[in-house]
Amino acid sequence: MMEYLNLGKISLLIGFILILIGFWGLLSQKNIIKIIVSFTILETGINILIVALGWIKGRTAPIIDDSVEQMANHNVLNTIVDPVPQALVLTAIVIGFGVTALLLAYAMKLFRAKRTLEINKFNDLKW
């Protein structure tokens, strides 16, 4: 069992579960704040997934210091995990922050307009 469930698979599983929870919340919740929270959960799941894809068994973080150099016998190539997904996730987190901040600002304005956060009450564009 333990060799079947390695760290990469566990992270992948957690990422998938968080994505599912996020989608479920986005589709089923009625309160705007809850929709925003579901959105951030979905985003966290995707970020975990991307980082998990860069994982390599038995290797360490892509920061070259003395311990890494010793471990590798001055061959960094065999000691570190993939740095590219981590850099991409850094970008994704910042973009996610921006989107969440905008969503919260819109939620504030919507509440001011109708004094409610129930998404069903905003049916002006429905026919």
Binding site: N6, G8, K9, G54, W55, I56, K57, P62, I63, I64, D65, V76, L77, N78, I80, D82, P83, V84, Q86, A87, L90, T91
Partner: peptide, 30 residues
Amino acid sequence: PKTELSGIAAHYAEHGAAEVGAANLVTAVV
């Protein structure tokens, strides 16, 4: 799970320290 660095990541790992001089390779990439 991957077993070794591929393509561009291998280039970053191998030449990143000499080309950019940053110990943190994620920073070098970003």
